[in-house]
Design a binder for these strands. Sequence first.
DNA 1: TAGTGGTCTAGACCACGGA
DNA 2: CCGTGGTCTAGACCACTAT
Lengths: 256, 256
Amino acid sequence: MPSSSLEPQSDAASSATPDTDVPVAGLKARLLNHLEAAPLRASQRLPSEREMIERFATTRVTLRDTLLQLEAEGRIYRENRRGWFVSPPRLRYDLLACLPFRDMVESQQRVASTEVLAAGEVAANAVIARRLGIAEGSVVYRITRVRRIDGRRVLHVCHHLRRDCFPGILDFDLGAHSLTDLYRHEYAIRVSRVSFELASTVFDAEAAAALNAAQGSPAQRITRINFDQNGRAVDCDDEHWRHDAIELTLSAAPQS
Amino acid sequence: MPSSSLEPQSDAASSATPDTDVPVAGLKARLLNHLEAAPLRASQRLPSEREMIERFATTRVTLRDTLLQLEAEGRIYRENRRGWFVSPPRLRYDLLACLPFRDMVESQQRVASTEVLAAGEVAANAVIARRLGIAEGSVVYRITRVRRIDGRRVLHVCHHLRRDCFPGILDFDLGAHSLTDLYRHEYAIRVSRVSFELASTVFDAEAAAALNAAQGSPAQRITRINFDQNGRAVDCDDEHWRHDAIELTLSAAPQS
DNA sequence: TAGTGGTCTAGACCACGGA
DNA sequence: CCGTGGTCTAGACCACTAT
């Protein structure tokens, strides 16, 4: 077992890491962990891959494997062809609080922003029709947005709204207003029940492009259906989050 | 666009693969997708990596990247050094139904089994103490189990129970009984509120070993705290699921 | 245009699994 | 024991980003 000191020596050598008896693989992984543990960067960019290769005396493939590992752990992330970055702390997302995005983000001392990618009418496909309890092919509103936290694009959302519930809603500024606020104040519709479906996957091509994520980056999918005070499904949305951006929370009475 | 049938043919040479203008990356990814789409295997093992290399005329590294992608998508999974397998359909896990594991699994026509890895007493660390509202260092029961669906190890759970709530619970057969059933019938404690914390990460070394997962495989972490009818936290658990094994669902009234 | 990450080739040795 | 996946080396070309 080579107990050599595999230290990144930028200027002053970060000494005192025995690195002996590294049991099994990892090797470089711990190494990179240490890289982050030591300077504890804020949310900055890592050195370029070629630079890290030299620093750690390793290969592109090996380095890349390690970076992908750390990405899976949620410790770093990448922007497509732009580089690797240290992940900021996860936003706590209380599924049942039903806070507007902006409020949720700001209550955690972060900065929120929203971008509307598209807003229009489409015919509901089978999935959407089933969720909303309407006939396939019915025209619904579709709104696609990207949301940022502290400038970082973390969420791609696609909403489908029953047109008969929210006539003319596209005329509002959907980048500035919370949809649930519009529901309540402009349409007298209150969300009185929500139903979720969560799974961990990767971004599809569209979401990846919108978030500037590499295709194949891990993503958290959240599908939500909102029901109004009459138990009618009024809208649904498909959210794809950078998986390292959130930690979901939830507190409720079980239905037993 | 090459609409040719990209079929893996074992003996016959892998001819007729134009490979022209494959738009962007993927290349092999689509190829492997097709591999699965065509025969639509049940939950069987994929050919060995070296065999696939030949079949698809590619390299180990490239092949491996592709497999890891499919793993991240939740379409295949691996057992440590044993090979790659097609992922079975996800189990729907209703967070608020609070069904015992066995019931949940069997209600979906699957077969459940449980293995107790360890059961004993430990001193509560800071995290556990905070969750349970007890003093750090208090002695609690700890139960570690592995759960299977259709024989596949999918879940590593570690429970921490307040000893004053469940005296002598370790004497029951914890592999056969549901904990919540024991709570109710043996200790007259009913779970009347649950609080969750969900995040997507990778397995730690212990969980990976217990599930025979490769270290670094993606995992869904679910932390739960159970409160009894008096609002007292009586136990908590840390679940680590193979991320492709579940789809979480949830339906409730928001707390607005 | 220079440098970056994304993708890929063609090998190698090791530790562990299963027969 | 052989075959498997796990890890690693040492390069290469391309598409895109940033300047």
